[in-house]
């Protein structure tokens, strides 16, 4: 029952890196059992085949463009995820979509894929998120926790 929480995005481009930043905030505040891996995937592609193949469930955290206002959160599960990627709505669509397709070809696709996304505001050059998106990170962390609970895992707050 292994789960991969995978933060995606380019941290050099402000909100483009919000998936990685949300994953980091989750990792800083919450501990998880050994069966859960929390990984910063950046914008990598084929490099992550092995990583994803070695987990049964994937929770991807990423910047998405849905046409909704900046800061809008989405959580997608199951068949909605590949359908969603088909419309090329995430900047990293090429990477993750191709990875999942490759894994399906090899019969190693995860049992479940959950996508936790947020619509970015600023995609300029910079290491910081825009304040508006920074303010959405706690809600994204809650969405990660909810996704883990759905898979039967209860993260523990590091503050306790």
């Amino acid at each position: 029952m292994s789960i991969l929480v995978l933060g995606l995005g380019n941290i050099l481009l402000m909100d483009e890196g919000l998936g990685v930043r949300a994953m980091e905030q989750f990792d800083a505040g919450w501990s998880v059992p050994e069966s859960v891996s929390v990984v910063d995937g950046g914008t990598c592609g084929m490099d992550m085949l092995d990583l994803i193949a070695s987990h049964r469930h994937l929770i991807a955290v990423d910047a998405v463009k849905t046409g909704a206002p900046a800061g809008t959160l989405v959580t997608l599960r199951g068949d909605d995820v590949p359908a969603y990627f088909k419309g090329k709505l995430s900047p990293h669509q090429l990477g993750l979509c191709d990875l999942l397709a490759s894994l399906r070809l090899q019969g190693e696709a995860p049992d479940s894929v959950t996508l936790i996304g947020c619509v970015p505001l600023a995609l300029g050059t910079g290491l910081m998120l825009s304040p508006e998106i920074e303010a959405r990170l706690p809600a994204m962390v809650q969405a990660i926790i909810a996704a883990l609970r759905d898979l039967g895992v209860e993260p523990q707050s590091r503050a306790l």
């Binding site: 481009l13 483009e16 463009k65 090329k88 709505l89 900047p91 995609l123 300029g124």
Partner: peptide, 15 residues
């Protein structure tokens, strides 16, 4: 091209 240049716009490049 990822390092030659980088992303600023996604919606317009979606198709």
């Amino acid at each position: 091209l990822a390092c030659a240049v980088h992303l600023t716009d996604t919606e317009n490049s979606s198709t």
